[in-house]
């Protein structure tokens, strides 16, 4: 196994050391068995990186993303985000962390269907303590930047998948987080729209220096990232350059 032990880097945005995640399952005999989903994950991600995570279905990609997003907790091991040990933070502190430092983009868009696109984008600002008027105003500007101002008053079910994902990305960006976590953001989109979304990510990464970590099953989506991480059965089996991975392809 070519597990790539990252060099210690105190400036890294994300530092993960010896992280494990397992679920307790009850088997047919009523016995509890441990189902290890992530094993000995060591990972550093610097500010401004664009990382793609790939792996077979069930390999643990989403589990890792949830832990990165402070939505889930590891069974053991350490996770530092912006030099904060996540395990030490209270629920409220984690909520604040998600609000300020992380933007989420999901495969299923996960917009709030009862609200307009504009209000959806404004919600993180409200949770950050902004007032409604200024939140709306900032949300409008954000939608303009993503080319969606025409759809501000539309509800999610009045938007195409690509438009919904753009609204979701606008929402992820509204608090200007240093990190965007995208779990199969193009999974529900056609090739053309997927490309557009990826161009948007690429631009955000290049122009604003936002760190992007995305999970995908598609090679040409992953090709937008500069760094590739391959996960197999809960372990990182490759972590490095896109180009080198192609050489390893037959191995995996």
């Amino acid at each position: 196994m070519s597990t790539n032990q990252p060099a210690p880097s105190p400036s890294a945005l994300i530092r993960i050391a010896q992280l494990h995640k397992s679920y307790k399952l009850i088997d047919a005999d009523g016995k509890t068995i441990e189902n290890a989903v992530l094993q000995n994950i060591n990972l550093n991600i610097e500010k401004g990186e664009f990382v793609a995570i790939m792996g077979h279905s069930g390999s643990g990609k989403s589990t890792l993303m949830n832990i990165l997003g402070c939505l889930d907790t590891p069974t053991s091991g350490d996770y530092w985000l912006e030099n904060q040990n996540v395990a030490m933070l209270s629920n409220d502190a984690l909520a604040r962390l998600r609000n300020r430092y992380i933007g989420f983009v999901f495969q299923g868009f996960n917009l709030l269907n009862r609200m307009t696109a504009l209000d959806n984008v404004a919600v993180p600002l409200l949770y950050a303590g902004e007032n409604r008027a200024s939140s709306r105003q900032q949300a409008m500007e954000q939608l303009r930047r993503t080319g969606l101002e025409k759809f501000a008053m539309h509800h999610p079910n009045q938007l195409s998948g690509g438009q919904q994902q753009r609204v979701a990305i606008s929402r992820a960006l509204i608090n200007q987080p240093p990190l965007i976590l995208a779990d199969e953001p193009t999974g529900n989109l056609d090739t053309q729209t997927s490309q557009e979304i990826m161009v948007l990510f690429e631009r955000l990464n290049r122009e604003q220096g936002i760190t992007i970590v995305l999970v995908t099953h598609e090679k040409d989506i992953a090709a937008y990232a500069r760094r590739l991480i391959l996960i197999k059965d809960g372990s990182i089996v490759y972590d490095g350059d896109q180009a080198l991975e192609n050489a390893l392809d037959p191995v995996i």
Binding site: N99, V123, Y127
Partner: peptide, 16 residues
């Protein structure tokens, strides 16, 4: 439940 999950992901704390 899903809405609650989304709200939590984008920064709602428990009190909210």
């Amino acid at each position: 439940t899903r809405e609650i999950g989304i709200r939590m992901a984008i920064g709602a704390n428990r009190n909210a």
